[in-house]
Amino acid sequence: MKIEITNLHFTYPTGLEALKGISLTIESGEQVAIVGQNGAGKTTLVRHFNGLLQPASGSVLIGDWDTKKTSVAKLASRVGYVFQNPDEQLFSRDVLTEVAFGPRNLGYSKEKIDELVKRALSLTELSNQTETNPYDLSPTWRKMVALASIIAMDTPIVIFDEPTTGQDAVNVARIANVIAELRKEGKTVITITHDIDFCAENFERVIALFKGQVLLDGSAREVLGQEEVLAQTYVDPPQLTRLGKRLGLKETVRNQEEFLKALES
């Protein structure tokens, strides 16, 4: 499902102009990371995709639906959004009810709901926690419940707002695995992140925002190699990209494999 954003402007009631003319096309099945300084407009932008925010001017199309003319409830069948803070999202008494809430609201058949819930729980390694109250889980696992409850909705577009914040290495790997599975299924995955190494290792396309505008947009290799431009929006290139640059490697490297290969040759 294609996302088409045309000359999008948005101003908060306080007068803060958060988005200043953004135009972007995200094709079906793309894996996109959005990076940039705190307050650059990352969360404000993605909250336009599921209609939580409405453009002051310009437009956002999700497939053939204009978000200005479509309810948030209807958009929820196309765009799933995992909040930055799981505590803003979770409300059910147990994990199973929480995860089943979304697909149930989308009106799927009972068989389909069962299947989607089972799969989401297994992907997030929560299958043995179905009866637990989400608030009895540690923040790490609450985050996984938040992920599961969106994945279970089986939307063609899934948005993660800073999924790796406060997560340890094991859980970051778990989240990377979830994203890889969604990619295999052909879903569009859009992730806001400050974890630039995670970004380099899991996303093909990177968009850098700066003060409400698009600063850079391209393949991860193109974007993450531009150290000086990224610095404008307070982003450092990934560790191994910086190392490659310092060593004078010709190619921009993104991960361990590319780095060691470039060093050998």
């Binding site: 290495a169 190392l243 361990q256 060093l263």
Partner: peptide
């Protein structure tokens, strides 16, 4: 033990095996 480690550390550890 499941701790996060710097990419520099993990890459050098791998590079050590390859003599780099």
């Amino acid at each position: 033990n499941g701790f996060g480690i710097s990419r520099y550390t993990s890459t050098a550890r791998e590079g050590k095996k390859q003599g780099l």
